[in-house]
Nucleic acid binder design. Structure first.
Lengths: 210, 210
DNA sequence: TTCATATTAAAACGAACGTTTGAACTTATT
DNA sequence: AATAAGTTCAAACGTTCGTTTTAATATGAA
């Protein structure tokens, strides 16, 4: 009973909403902006998603889940390969999927929006903030566990805020990509590899610090 | 011809606006929220500031300027004391004023709001973002110059995004202050001193990385 | 075809938005 | 006391907001 155009409508809304929420935030984006740019009817939003907040939740889930999935897979691969990987290896596993997605999205606005959206979630008031926190909680716990094994002399509390600053840096680097003096200037695979290396070298000694 | 209550009204608006803009962002905060919490008339906002955007500009200036001023003074002191200070010394000078202000504001919501407001400015769309960028540009240039002298083997571009990540980390640490697992748990001078030391130790090797 | 279901469409809802207006009130100076 | 400037106030402006309603259209199963 599902028309093909219904899928298109729903996906169109999701794509446009991702872009506008990232650029203007939750409160700064109106549903009328979304439906105008998506070329659909206003009622379609409530029909497919129920409310503005649930649309936002769907956008965050759509954006976060691929990254969370890949990051957990990367960690599993690393931990299967080596008994006790070092900090650099774990950080590389943590950062790579996000930058991979950056390339897959073409490196333009579509790519930076993904990061800007996450950055926004971390500053927006509840209940918006909690939406993203929930999506990433499993990921953070898994990597904190891994880091705990590599850096047993550090408390969980310490590792927690330190990894939080890695996330802040990652989001910032991706959000600023393309701007002058940014770490990422273009989306070539080579440039991304260099960026990963630089970020690993930046944050690995930071994670080890006391 | 200036009544005492006029000053109170203007300051009241500024204080409440700082709090609400920090918590809810520019678009998410209405002038009616502000005047209600400030206990003043709606027209007072336009009488004293002209528009919502100019009120935001005034709030950012009021928040940023003391920190910028102190940070530049700290850098001058450090550079007068030593011919070539090390990275740790420069970072300490960079971080200390922000954390000092944190104590001065009492360490509660009033303190975290200051940082949250800056964090918001960095994700908000133009022209909001540019308002804060302009306030901090002189500060960033001065510290980049200082870092350039200490780390001459690194390009300006490199130092630029690395210091940008320090700022992102500083804002994040202050924004999260008080939460469980945050670096800053209370606003005692001792706790702040420890936090500065931890942050310096975290970011100094990161700044030196390749 | 017929019927029920899924989807789209247009119009309207009340509420809240930033801003403007013009009168009332306060204050300092004559 | 009179005057003028500074400041506050209540009310209204037109617009936009998220959401709801009701009807029309398209689609798949019988």
């Amino acid at each position: 009973m599902k028309a093909a155009s219904a899928i298109d409508t729903k996906e169109q809304i999701l794509n446009v909403a991702e872009e506008l929420f990232a650029e203007q935030g939750f409160a700064g984006t109106s549903l009328r902006q979304v439906i105008k740019q998506a070329g659909v009817n206003l009622s379609a939003v409530h029909y497919h998603f129920g409310s503005k907040e649930e649309l936002f939740r769907a956008v965050v889930a759509k954006t976060a889940q691929p990254i969370v999935k890949k990051s957990l897979e990367q960690l599993a691969i690393v931990e299967a390969r080596e008994e006790t990987p070092n900090v650099e290896t774990i950080l590389e596993a943590f950062l790579t999927p996000s930058l991979q997605v950056f390339i897959e999205n073409g490196g333009g606005d579509r790519s930076t929006n993904c990061a800007r959206l996450m950055g926004r979630c971390r500053t927006e008031p509840d209940p918006i903030q909690k939406i993203a926190d929930d999506e990433f909680e499993e990921l953070c716990v898994a990597y904190l566990d891994a880091l705990q094994r590599v850096l047993p002399e550090q408390s969980r509390n310490e590792l927690d805020w330190k990894l939080d600053l890695v996330v802040a840096g990652l989001i910032r680097v991706l959000s600023e990509a393309g701007k002058s003096n940014a770490l990422i200037q273009d989306n070539s695979p080579e440039a991304i590899q260099v960026a990963i290396k630089r970020l690993v070298n930046y944050f690995a000694p930071a994670m080890r610090s006391h």
